[in-house]
Design a protein around this nucleic acid. Structure first.
Lengths: 219, 219, 219, 219
DNA sequence: AATGAATGAGAGTTCATTCAT
DNA sequence: CATGAATGAACTCTCATTCAT
């Protein structure tokens, strides 16, 4: 039996639980597994969390807090920074800029493989409560991308489009790539992921050799 | 007690199970729930399925069979159809063509809201076996999109890119949009989904007003 | 594993549970104890009862049903039987008549020592639900005695008094005697109990030698 | 953290525990509940009591001490007081005298609604140890009433009867009335309770109009 | 003396699965 | 083939009690 400051113990349990959930999955993971990993008695966990589920939601809420904080940070940044007029900016510069923003987001949500696995796999389809936190995270993620799109739109970098839908697709696409990486057990390279996704969504897939539209070039 | 031809009974159970799984989620759904819905005794189910899980995998495998069949069908089609040279094809025509292909895929995977919910929510993070079927479905889906991209590439419609990665993102983006629709309880409009996604991925988000690259326009 | 008709099994479990609860007390008694006594698996019990507590309330409700039935039976009897005028009836005859009525009641509530012990000891102070059934039993018991008192009053056998309060005291007195017998492990002799109680409550304790009241003899 | 003289602390804990036990019942009441009510840490309680149960028995023992003291007091009184010859005493005077005695008893046992509730509800059917204290209290209570009956008998006020049994019934009847009052949430009026019970047990229920016994009037 | 973090035995309960009918 | 009674492993969670601080 070792004593620990209440806050530290809570953090420690969360850290262990995260690893256990990621390794075994939420259902296969026992309270015992978590407690063994944390080196505490089974009862001790219940002094810090009311539920097995509440352990998971606490983990998720950490991520939620992270993305919320990022959003606030970016908001503060945007207030000061202006955009250069689009005529002065090359496409690749614009893409790089966007990719950097996306990478920042990914670094928060997919801080580590465990978080990633929990967010995209173990916490899915569990429960209304969990689903709600997951939904909130998604909302914030999409909102971040969306706001970045809207800002670029205002600056003239980006054509007119349904920013929300595009943001959703961007997030979904990135998640799927991450999941694929996860499945093949190769480490997830967030840098490359962000760049890849941004480039696709920025310039699209069509070749320039296609016959241009007779009327307008933009949507 | 009503007798039924073995195959019909199996199909009937699957149909009921699908609804039950979609409504309550895999874990919250009991064998009893399914059997009640199917109007059979609890023991009867075990004459058609070895497991609770095997009921789910049977449902998933139906979808897997569907997409595999689609893939074969498209393969057959492609063998005969040729592509017109890109100089003769407008961008919007190309997009429409792609969207039609994507829609066909979606009509199979997201045949109904129940299937969609099970694929994207209830079957996620359950189990190695289930995960494997899910993975296979994903693989086929991505392969279909990928092959379509590669074909277009060969025909010169599409610029050079990592077809596999792009296909993955396309699938992920569409799924995320579908999930969003699911969450907001509005019916999923596959037609619009396919079009929306295809356009984004085809022409990208950047505005034409951006300063063109000094050297090459394509990557 | 032995199969049994649903109803029989329920009855059997109840019988075993009654013995177990009486022997060990509600809290000390495990579900396992009951199931072992009944020779069934722990899960089987839960096909017949939703709760450990519901097993107890089922036992209590049996008694409640018993006393309710008795009450109905007596009501039917009373409708036909008339009372002789009090001048023709000796005190001891009246007492014997009353005692017979009380004994009938006791034979239902205290059918056996187990029931008695559960009613007066193990089910006390458990829970709002249990307390409610216990309260209902008490109400019926008291109502039976009260109605008998009121009837005798109308016939002129019994002086004017607060019938409800007296009935309550009669029931309480009898219960205490039964409890005392229970505690000393001697078998409870309901016949004697009823007679003893009735005589006390009928003629009171005071000696005839007491100086009579100057005014009225009756209250 | 506040320091307190050992004895005071113990008394304070007991007072709080009594309220908590009465409010929530012995099982529903946690050590935490008691400690919160007493404004102490959970560990502190264990420096004054060895057990959760021992807290309860301490409460009960307070009552036991009370009734024992009363018994001793009455014993002392009786040694000096004599009884007037019955021919000089009216029935109502005798009743009033008895009622006064009973009231004194009740004032000790049912000092407050909490004690009453604990004695008659929460402490019942708990445990051999608790049951024993409860039994002792009962014994003393009954003994007090019994002795009063025997004394009155000797003085000729009371007819020949099984004093012990009658005393038991008196106590039981009074308790039942008190319980009924408790259940209906009306305050327990000990004065009225004692009078009501004494009158019933003194003069009985039978009407004078009943035909007198042919032989002896007394049993 | 006072605390509250730590404990772990043990409880009730669920439910996929089996099997006698 | 169909049934549903029977099962028991395995789970989460409670809470009186201990003990390092």
């Amino acid at each position: 039996m070792s004593y620990m400051r209440s806050e530290d113990r809570q953090r420690q349990i969360l850290a262990c639980a995260k690893r256990v959930f990621a390794d075994r999955g939420f259902h296969a993971a026992n309270i015992s597994h978590i407690c063994e990993a944390a080196g505490i008695g089974r009862g001790t966990l219940y002094q810090y969390f009311t539920n097995k589920r509440s352990v998971l939601t606490a983990i998720l809420r950490e991520t939620l807090d992270g993305v919320k904080a990022l959003m606030a940070r970016q908001e503060a940044m945007m207030a000061v920074t202006g955009f250069a007029p689009p005529e002065k900016v090359t496409r690749s510069a614009a893409i790089e800029f966007s990719a950097r923003g996306l990478r920042e987001v990914l670094q928060v949500v997919f801080a580590d493989d465990d978080t990633l696995r929990i967010l995209l796999r173990e916490a899915v389809g569990l429960d209304v409560d969990v689903e709600q936190v997951l939904g909130e995270i998604d909302d914030v993620l999409i909102a971040i991308v969306e706001r970045s799109i809207v800002a670029s739109q205002r600056a003239g970098f980006i054509r007119e489009l349904d920013a929300r839908a595009v943001a959703t697709m961007v997030v979904g696409g990135v998640e799927k790539l991450a999941l694929a990486a996860l499945r093949s057990d190769e480490p997830v390279d967030l840098e490359r992921l962000a760049m890849e996704a941004t480039r696709l969504h920025a310039i699209g897939t069509l070749s320039n050799r296609l016959k241009p539209e007779p009327t307008t070039q933009e949507r």
